[in-house]
Design a protein around this nucleic acid. Structure first.
Lengths: 137, 137
DNA sequence: CTAAATGCAAAGCATTTGCAAATAT
DNA sequence: ATATTTGCAAATGCTTTGCATTTAG
C-alpha cells in the first residue's frame, strides 16, 4: 500500500509535506523533530517548524507514528508498527528495533501488579557491535 | 542510614531544601517537577523553581535520583534504587515499581542485536486493580 | 573561612496557537 | 466548495543561567 492511501486511512490529507515526512520516517527508521525539520527543509525551503510539530502531533494522535522516549535524549519518532523494543548505543546513538518474546515478563508483571496490561515500552541501552569493535582496538 | 549521610555520600550538601526533596521523593515514590515544587512550597514559601531544577539535575548527575520517562507524560523522578520496571495506570496515573526477571529477554536482546547491554528501561501501561474494579461496576 | 547552594530575574529553548492564504479532496 | 493544512509571527511554557546573598561543612 502506498503512502497516500496509508495517510488517508488515518484521516490525514496527503499533502506533499506529509508524504515527505513519511518518506523520511521510513528511510531513517527513527528521527527527532529537529533532524526531521532539517531534512524536510531540503525539499520545502519555506516549511515552518510549526508545521512539523502540528503534523507529528496529529500523526501521533491518529496512531500513525509513535514517539520513543529515550533516557537522557530528545524523543524520536517512528512509523507505527507492531510492538517492539528499542536498543540504543550510548556511544554513537544508533538505534535498532528488536522483537522480543515478552510474554513471560508480562505474565510476571500482571501477576505482581494485578494490572490489566495494555502496552509495553522497552528501551535497552548499551554499546553497539561497531562501537564495541572500535573500543577493543 | 539517614538522609544527611546519603546526600553527603553523593557529594551533595544537606541543605534543608534538599532534605525535604528527599523526603518527598521517598514518600511519593515518583513525582514530577511541578508537583514536587508545590509540595516543597509548603515548607519553603520562598523556594524558587530554579532551585528545584538545579537540585534535581545535580541529583540526577550524581546518580542519586533517576528520571522515569513515561509515554505521553511529563517525566517523573524517584530515588535511585536497584533496576526495576514501572507499571502505570492509564486511568488514574498511579504508578508502581515491579521487579521482573529480565534475564531471558536480555539474553534475547543481546543475541539479536549483538549489543553489550548496560541498562534497561521497562515501562508498562495498563489499568490498575482499583480502576479495573470500578470499571466493572 | 570557603566552596556550594539559594532565590530572584532574565535569558534561552521548545512547543503551541491564531490567523490569513493556499490546497487536497 | 469546504474543511483542512500551511506558514508566519506571536504567545506560551519549560528549563537554564548569571549573579548577589546566604549557608553548610
Amino acid at each position: 500500500m502506498n503512502y497516500i492511501t496509508k495517510l488517508q486511512n488515518h484521516d490525514l490529507k496527503a499533502t506533499p509535506q506529509r508524504l515527505e515526512i513519511v518518506d523520511i520516517l521510513y528511510k531513517s527508521g527513527h528521527i527527532n523533530i529537529d533532524d526531521l525539520y532539517v531534512s524536510l527543509k531540503n525539499k520545502f525551503p519555506s516549511l515552518s517548524l510549526a508545521t512539523v510539530y502540528k503534523n507529528i502531533n496529529t500523526m501521533r494522535d491518529r496512531v500513525f507514528v509513535s514517539e520513543v522516549k529515550i533516557p537522557n535524549k530528545k524523543s524520536l519518532y517512528e512509523l507505527k508498527k507492531d510492538e517492539h523494543a528499542h536498543i540504543i548505543c550510548t556511544k554513537c546513538n544508533s538505534i535498532m528495533d528488536i522483537t522480543l518474546q515478552t510474554s513471560e515478563i508480562l505474565d510476571q508483571a500482571e501477576e505482581l501488579s494485578r494490572y490489566k496490561i495494555e502496552q509495553t515500552a522497552i528501551i535497552i541501552s548499551g554499546i553497539c557491535p561497531k562501537c564495541l569493535s572500535q573500543t577493543m582496538q
